[in-house]
């Protein structure tokens, strides 16, 4: 464990907590894409298959449980909670996220480090996570006034993977034979998808104006 990865995990945790805070306290999911949340639930479900078979550390197991629990409960809240679901804008959240799942699965079957079920599922989760934010970014462009919590959520979600990139660079230079091209390229693509969001988020913070993405 290095400071970059720990900071990344904490940033990821913070993004989840911000979202749970928003949904649980003000009982609203305005501006939040259910599709991105469903994709993330699938990402964690396919990435943490070794949750019960391999024990790495208490930290590792705890964080996996938090990410799995939070992502599935957020999907439940938006789909079934009688108050929260009313604020879900299904007419705007129209990204065909199923069109993301299949290509990622096919790609994972073609390009992976080892052709085993667990390895292919793990690779699938990496590819899917790289594109999981797309429905949310599309929804943000359609949502005129983005509330602070939603903006913070997306920012933290993007920042965590950027910190992971620093972690991979650090591990590459400090650990012999630490080479994971699939992880690195997926993480880089994922972070680059946030590039324009980061730009507008920074501009709104610098000029102290409401965050708005150009249509």
């Amino acid at each position: 464990m290095n400071i970059f990865r720990f900071a990344g995990d904490m940033t990821h945790l913070a993004s989840v907590l911000v979202l749970l805070l928003k949904i649980h306290t003000i009982k609203s999911c305005a501006g939040i894409s259910l599709k991105t949340q469903e994709l993330y639930a699938l990402v964690f479900a396919t990435r943490y298959l070794d949750l019960f078979t391999d024990y790495i550390s208490l930290y590792n197991t705890l964080m996996k449980l938090i990410f799995l629990g939070s992502s599935f409960s957020i999907v439940w809240y938006i789909r079934y909670h009688k108050i929260v679901r009313r604020s879900y804008d299904k007419d705007q959240d129209t990204f065909r996220h199923y069109f993301l799942v299949l290509p990622c699965l096919l790609l994972a079957l073609l390009i992976n480090e080892k052709f085993t079920f667990r390895e292919v599922m793990w690779t699938f989760s990496l590819y899917l996570e790289a594109v999981a934010i797309l429905p949310q970014l599309v929804l943000l462009q359609r949502t005129r006034n983005i509330d602070n919590l939603t903006g913070q959520y997306v920012f933290l979600l993007g920042a965590y993977r950027a910190l992971y990139i620093l972690n991979w660079i650090y591990r590459y230079f400090t650990e012999p034979h630490y080479v994971h091209w699939i992880t690195w390229i997926s993480g880089l693509v994922q972070t680059l998808l946030y590039a324009d969001f980061f730009y507008y988020y920074f501009q709104s913070w610098k000029n102290n104006v409401k965050l708005e993405l150009p249509a």
Partner: peptide
């Protein structure tokens, strides 16, 4: 070898 389980990163 490159790929190994369990993966130590989240």
């Amino acid at each position: 070898s490159q790929s190994k389980f369990p993966k130590d990163e989240l």
